[in-house]
């Protein structure tokens, strides 16, 4: 009951400060919270973009890691901070489209935040063990149908994007697979190479070394269009599961009631940053798709994704046991 009141108060407060703020922002260091550990893809990318943003804004932009609880600790921190534009969060599908539907979170993914800019998408690649007598999505599905529950899939944990993507795959293909969770997708590589685990949806970039070395086979990618990083791979949708798509969005959000001039400024600067040729090249190299656009389109993406994943979570009955 307290929450809406708090949000309202915060919004009123923000409105009162608005004229002064809009002109002077940014007057000091802008902090971007990365709700994941240092060194992960989100962290590395945010640090890269923060460097670019700080030259454009003329104020330091620092990255602070607030890892924990699937990103919800960092997201919550931003939800509860002052909407003055000095604290933003690099949110992802896990903090805003998945986490809230897995269990109770201290924040509301829509009401407690102001969407600022959609930065991009990360794509997964479906890799399977060399020991599995299948070379395409169709053959894999046939194999899984023959022996329900026999094929294992690795994920980076319950309720993670790799888990839900696999659940989506299984439900669309109408097959039964056994879930084997790991702490991170890379930890499962030895077990996939040895054939104990059959398949994994892994980040397109981190999966590369083992695909190139021939330790695992890549058969498809999870996005709706082919990736310039691996143009030879079909999408899962083309290869046998029409309509299948699973990408992870990430973008900047602020607390609820962030003044519009600040939102517009960050949005404009980020769009400018994304258009830089070296940033474009970096994104392509790291296997990320660029997004950009206005805050409203970002809000739409968030909503669409939330609907999609909450349905997968409900249908598959994903919850901590």
């Amino acid at each position: 009951m307290k929450k809406p009141l708090f949000a309202l108060a915060a919004a009123v407060l923000a409105l009162a400060q608005l004229p002064a703020l809009a002109q002077s922002w940014p007057a000091r260091t802008v902090k971007i919270i990365v709700p994941f550990p240092a060194g992960g893809p989100t962290d590395v990318l945010t640090r890269y973009l923060a460097e670019k943003l700080s030259t454009q804004l003329g104020q330091p932009v620092v990255v602070e890691n607030k890892p924990g609880a699937g990103g919800s600790i960092g997201a919550d921190l931003v939800a509860k901070s002052a909407p003055d534009g000095y604290t933003l969060v690099m949110a992802t599908a896990s903090t805003h489209s998945i986490g809230p539907y897995l269990g109770k979170l201290p924040y509301d993914p829509v009401k407690d935040f102001t969407p600022v800019v959609w930065v991009g998408n990360a794509t997964n690649v479906l890799v399977i063990s060399n020991a599995i007598p299948a070379n395409s999505v169709k053959e894999l599905i046939d194999l899984a149908r023959k022996d329900p529950g026999k094929l294992n899939y690795a994920t980076s944990g319950i309720g993670t994007i790799s888990h839900l993507t696999s659940e989506l795959f299984a439900s669309m293909a109408g097959v039964k697979l056994t879930h084997v969770p790991y702490k991170g997708t890379q930890q499962s590589i030895p077990d996939i190479a040895s054939g104990q685990v059959a398949m994994l949806f892994d980040n397109i970039m981190t999966a590369q070394p083992n695909i190139k070395a021939g330790r695992v086979k890549a058969i498809a990618i999870s996005s709706s269009a082919r990736s310039p990083l691996v143009p030879e791979l079909p999408t899962v949708s083309e290869a046998g599961l029409p309509g299948f798509q699973s990408v992870v969005w990430f973008g900047l959000l602020g607390p609820a009631g962030l003044p519009k001039p600040v939102v517009d400024r960050v949005n404009a600067e980020m769009n400018k940053t994304l258009a830089l040729p070296d940033v474009k090249a970096r994104f392509a190299q790291m296997g990320f798709d660029q997004a950009g656009g206005n805050p409203a389109s970002f809000a739409q993406v968030m909503q669409r994704d939330a609907e999609k994943w909450s349905k997968v979570i409900k249908d598959a009955g994903v919850k901590p046991e």
Partner: peptide, 28 residues
Amino acid sequence: LTLGIPSNPVMALMIGAMIIHGIQPGPQ
């Protein structure tokens, strides 16, 4: 360097560092 598997948080960061510099860790 050879498998792209980080054995501790520092190694995870090194992978991040390689990726940001456009290098894919791995035997290649």
